[in-house]
Design a protein around this nucleic acid. Structure first.
Length: 612
RNA sequence: GCUGGCGUAGCUCAGAGGUAGAGCGGCUGCCUUGUAAGCAGCGGGUCGGGGGUUCGAAUCCUCUCGCCAGCUCCA
């Protein structure tokens, strides 16, 4: 159940991956995989893999093997995990099976017969699946000596599998429940052509290179320490990025009537009881006992923002009230779920709660969408929008739901934003818009959410305003976050840009490199000029060869290197080198300064200095 | 939390019962530097932590903490 979904930070999950697994696990739909070429090849690859495994390890039991996003897996019951050498052997055997071009043959048999068949073959998981379904007749697919319970479809023969590779193995629970025995899962990837496979493998390789945990350490942005798992230590350079994001965010919000607040991190249990977190969310909260009172570290900002709302008696004239808060939150996440900046226990949410009248909803949503486009545009992200509507369990006045969903839809239309509807996927307290972006490697990230709330804050905390008719009325609350969390967002940006941040975000924007000590004075004067202009500039006048210092600046991915020697010192120029390796040549210091300032002010994603 | 893997110098890693190693980084000196690594020398470690086995433990056993992959979870 989705509760208190105050701008959740969960990664977007592929709906396809979900359904392909569910088809197998729960016999949903008519087939075991999407009957399109790519899922079919992947599904067939998983059968070939199972065949290879059965040949090499006759004692393993078969569980399930669906196609998933980018590939396939198969789960086996086996006492020992598969080793990397095992995977090599299995992959080799798969290639032999492909070589033989064995046809996939479909057979039908009564369910009861199938139960006996799989019992006789010693496949308890297949039997369990068969006993759980109510079909009279089921289908099997056979290729060579291998046969599996399966609804297909499959490629005509194993020779149609052209481009695949096994990737990894690990434990996975039978039917996805930690109460069930653990199986051994092997993941593979399969594509229609070798080119697509190569490209996918390149992407995996590239993602590894861009890992923000590695880059964060190498570029001195942030580190994790044993003493506080799931909570980053922001280093000076990482903090520059954090502060620039904050600055940008505040600029945008200040200009749009938001009022920033800051509420306590440590709050008495009474508040959490009032908000319902104590009942529904306690196991994810860090609790502290002092003087016989229990306090909780806030996992969300929303309850406390209502205290700010209630500080005054509100008039309809006060609305909308837009209260923003960069709140530091703590959520207890199970140890095995932490993952760098992507899944943390402490993070800073760029939160805001808008309290408004129902008739103001559309314009408020429109305003939030504008902010989303503005903030994401700066990074070159193209947001996609998902509108989630009333679920069966939705609470509150149906007319209000209707009005709110219309407001959300019209706000999207008004800003000319195409969107996908996720019917019935809204929270019980209101409909929402989720925003997803794709990074440069094509990975999807859910960042912003805009959630309407008729129930949680307004009802539980008894929020009111006095309307024009003198009557007390209930406002609607809008929960929204744009970056989601600074931690996760910086992690995403780090991988998206591979550490080569746009100049406005770069911890060091330029470095002056005097060719030798003879040029030290001029180097310092250039450095001073830029620093006075507000540029984050460094002077590297160490007693090292130019090539050595360039290499270091290059590895640190500094946008600009400013090389100065006798020539430049005479002409009042610098020799400009970009981190891309381009040698731009001599640029007068005046122009350099003006261009740099302009590039930073415009928050350009590309390096523009010296292009004019 | 579960399954498996891994914790050795700031970083990347070698060492697998017998006196803790390398490369890079750091420091010092020489060189006086022109677009991705000049040369030499010197420091640097309770081998994640606790307990055990052993004459002797980085190495074997055990507990624990953390990290990685996947599962589960993600309000």
């Amino acid at each position: 159940m989705v509760l208190f979904s105050c701008a959740g930070i969960a990664a977007a999950r592929s709906s396809m991956a979900r359904s392909e697994e569910d088809r197998h696990l729960h016999f949903e739909g008519q087939t075991d995989c999407e009957p399109a070429p790519l899922p079919t090849v992947r599904h067939s690859s998983s059968h070939v893999m199972a065949q290879a495994v059965k040949q090499l390890f006759p004692d393993v039991k078969l569980a399930i093997g669906p196609a998933i996003e980018d590939g396939f897996y198969y789960d086996f019951a086996k006492s020992e995990p598969f080793t990397p050498e095992d995977l090599n052997r299995i992959e080799q055997r798969m290639r032999e099976i492909v070589q033989k071009d064995l046809p996939f043959v479909r057979e039908e048999m009564p369910r009861e017969a199938a139960v006996r068949f799989f019992e006789s073959r010693g496949e308890p998981f297949k039997v369990e699946i068969l006993k759980g379904i109510d079909a009279l007749s089921v289908s099997l697919y056979r290729q060579g000596d291998f046969v599996d319970l399966c609804r297909g479809p499959h490629v005509p023969a194993t020779g149609h599998i052209k481009a695949f590779k096994l990737l990894s193995s690990s434990g996975a629970y039978w039917r996805g429940s930690e109460k069930n025995p653990m199986l051994q899962r092997i993941y593979g990837t399969a594509w229609l052509t070798q080119e697509e496979l190569d490209r996918h493998l390149w992407r995996l390789e590239e993602a590894k290179k861009r890992d923000h945990r590695k880059l964060g350490r190498e570029l001195d942005l942030f580190v994790f320490q044993d003493v506080s798992p799931g909570a980053p230590f922001w280093l000076p350079k990482g903090m520059v990025i954090f502060r620039e994001l904050e600055r940008f965010w505040r600029e945008v919000h200040d200009a749009r009537g938001y009022q920033e607040i800051s509420t306590p991190i440590l709050v008495n249990r009474r508040l959490w009881e009032e908000s319902g977190h104590w009942e529904h969310y306690r196991e994810n909260m860090f609790l502290v006992e002092v003087e016989e009172q229990v306090f909780g570290l806030k996992p969300m900002n929303c309850p406390e923002s209502t205290y700010v709302y209630r500080h005054h008696l509100r008039s309809y004239r006060d609305l909308p009230l837009r209260l923003s808060e960069l709140g530091r939150l703590h959520r207890f996440e199970r140890s095995g779920t932490l993952a760098g900046m992507f899944r943390v226990r402490q993070f800073t949410q760029d939160d805001a709660h808008i309290y408004c009248r129902p008739d103001q909803l559309q314009s408020e949503i429109t305003g939030v969408l504008e902010i989303v486009q503005l903030l994401y545009g700066a990074f070159g992200f193209e947001p996609r929008f998902f509108l989630s509507t009333k679920p069966d369990k939705g609470m509150g006045d149906p007319a209000l739901w209707e009005q709110a969903e219309t407001a959300l839809r019209e706000a999207l239309v008004k800003r000319d934003l195409p969107h996908e509807v996720r019917a019935g996927e809204g929270a019980f307290y209101g409909p929402k818009i989720d925003v997803v972006i794709s990074d440069v490697l094509g990975r999807d990230w859910q960042l912003a959410t805009i959630q309407l709330d008729f129930v949680m804050l307004p009802e539980r905390f008894g929020l009111e305003y006095i309307d024009a008719d003198g009557q007390a009325k209930r406002p609607v609350a809008i929960h929204r976050a744009i970056y989601g969390s600074f931690e996760r967002f910086v992690g995403i940006l780090t991988e998206h840009f591979a550490g080569a941040f746009p100049t406005w975000l770069a911890p060091v924007q330029a470095r002056v490199l005097p060719v030798s000590e003879k040029i030290a004075a001029y180097g310092r004067s250039v450095f001073d000029r830029l620093r006075d202009a507000g540029i984050r500039v460094e002077l590297d006048d160490r007693n090292e060869k130019l090539g050595y210092r360039i290499r270091e600046a290059q590895l640190q991915k500094l946008p600009y290197m400013l090389i100065v020697g006798a020539r430049e010192s005479q002409e009042g120029t610098v020799s400009l080198r970009r981190r891309t390796g381009e040698d731009v040549g001599a640029v007068p210091v005046d122009r350099l300064c003006a261009d740099l300032v302009a590039e930073v002010a415009s928050r350009s994603v590309s390096l523009t200095v010296g292009r004019s």
